[in-house]
Every structure is written in structure tokens, then in C-alpha cells.
């Protein structure tokens, strides 16, 4: 009994490292890396939220959130983004099931919702600028345009990415590399929705309450 617990004379010397090379399939660490990118992006938004928190009350004699923000418009925007989140989820599920046509269809629907969100936001921005409440008007508006604009810019790049992936999937199908890319965009897209929760709550709803 006791001899079996010790190193038996016939066996090889114990090794403290992996003798054979591990397999590192391409993209094995992509998801973790992309997650870390998202976390750093989160920090960018934290800075912008902090800036808005500090400057949000500095109207410089100009208009405040109560006069400027139209909550029904923001509600429609929030709905569009929320719907685009679940439609992207359906695209991912269909991609996992290797259903190419349905994946492309759901991706297209997601893109439409994303575009709707973006057009409403641009409409809101142009309205504000026409009313003379552009980013130059006050520190409040500077920080507002920076924060909401940065989010909108992310959505814009998300849509460009989405269209690119639709072309990729249509041409090459749902191969592992494309699935991985779809998954990265999935994280990105849902992450933007999480940021939007912060925006509509802290900027719009609390701004109107202020």
C-alpha cells in the first residue's frame, strides 16, 4: 500500500510543466479579449457620465433639461434599442442552429431598429441645435452632446459592423470564424443597451426631474 503512494521506480520522472504543446485554436481567447475591450469602453462612458454629473446643472443661463428633452421621443428610442437587443438575440440563436437565412433576417431587423434609434437621435440633436441649444451653449449641453453623441457613435459603428457581418455570413456561411464575430458583436450590441439604460435614466429621466 505505502509503495503505491510514492513514485514507483518504473514510472517517468514527474514533470512540472506541460510536455506537449497545448492546442490554441484561433480565436480561443477572442471572447475574453473583447470583453476586456468592452470593460475599457465602460470606463470611457464612466468618465463621460461623471463629466455630465458635474456639468449637468451648469446651464449658463441657457435652457435646462426640462425645456429641452422630449420624453416621448426618448421612450420610442429606448423601445427601438430594447427591441434590437432581443432581435439580435434571436439572430444569435439561429446562428447557433446553423440557420443562415433566419440569422440574416434577424440581423437585418436588428439593423433596422438600430437605424431607427440613430435617426431619432439625430433628429433630436438637429432640433436642439436649431433651437440654439447646441453643444456650445452651456457646459450642460457640452457634456450632454459628448455623452449621448459618444453612445450614438458606438451605435453607428455597431450598425456598420452588423452590415459587414451580414455580407460575411451571406458569402461564407456560419463558419466558426463568423460565429465568433457574431458573438463579439452580440456583446457589443447588448453592452450599448446597458449604457443606454444609464443614459435614459441619469440624463433624460433624472434631468427632467431636476
Amino acid at each position: 500500500m505505502s509503495t503505491t503512494t510514492q513514485t514507483a521506480p518504473g514510472t517517468e520522472a514527474p514533470s512540472y510543466y506541460d510536455l506537449d504543446e497545448h492546442e490554441h485554436p484561433p480565436g480561443a481567447s477572442t471572447m475574453l479579449g473583447f470583453w476586456l475591450y468592452l470593460m475599457s469602453d465602460c470606463l470611457i462612458f464612466a468618465m463621460l457620465f461623471a463629466a455630465y454629473g458635474v456639468y449637468g446643472g451648469s446651464y449658463a443661463g441657457g435652457p435646462g433639461p426640462k425645456e429641452l428633452f422630449e420624453l416621448p421621443l426618448v421612450a420610442v428610442n429606448t423601445t427601438a434599442l430594447l427591441l434590437s437587443s432581443i432581435t439580435y438575440g434571436f439572430a444569435m440563436i439561429n446562428a447557433d442552429e446553423q440557420n443562415k437565412a433566419a440569422t440574416l433576417r434577424w440581423l437585418a431587423i436588428t439593423g433596422v431598429f438600430g437605424a431607427a434609434f440613430l435617426s431619432i437621435e439625430l433628429y433630436e440633436f438637429s432640433n436642439l441645435i436649431h433651437e440654439g441649444a447646441g453643444p456650445w451653449r452651456s457646459a450642460f449641453l457640452s457634456s450632454f452632446f459628448t455623452l449621448v453623441g459618444t453612445h450614438g457613435l458606438h451605435v453607428t459603428f455597431g450598425i456598420i459592423w452588423l452590415v459587414t457581418l451580414m455580407v460575411q455570413v451571406a458569402r461564407r456561411g456560419l463558419e466558426p470564424a463568423n460565429l465568433r464575430r457574431l458573438q463579439c458583436l452580440s456583446l457589443f450590441w447588448h453592452f450599448l443597451d446597458v449604457i443606454w439604460i444609464g443614459v435614459f435614466t441619469f440624463v433624460y429621466l433624472l434631468g427632467v426631474l431636476r
Binding site: 490554441h24 485554436p25 434571436f90
Partner: peptide, 22 residues
């Protein structure tokens, strides 16, 4: 590693999960 190769190490959702979340 095999699992990660296939699924990128990230967990997946089901239709039910997306509906609950929505």
C-alpha cells in the same frame, strides 16, 4: 479548450432566456 473552440468560452442564451430578459 474544445468547448472554448466551439463556443468562445462565453455562455449562450436560449429563446426563453431572451424573452425573460426582454
Amino acid at each position: 479548450h474544445d468547448a472554448h473552440d466551439h463556443h468562445g468560452g462565453a455562455a449562450h442564451g436560449s429563446r426563453r432566456e431572451y424573452w425573460i430578459g426582454f
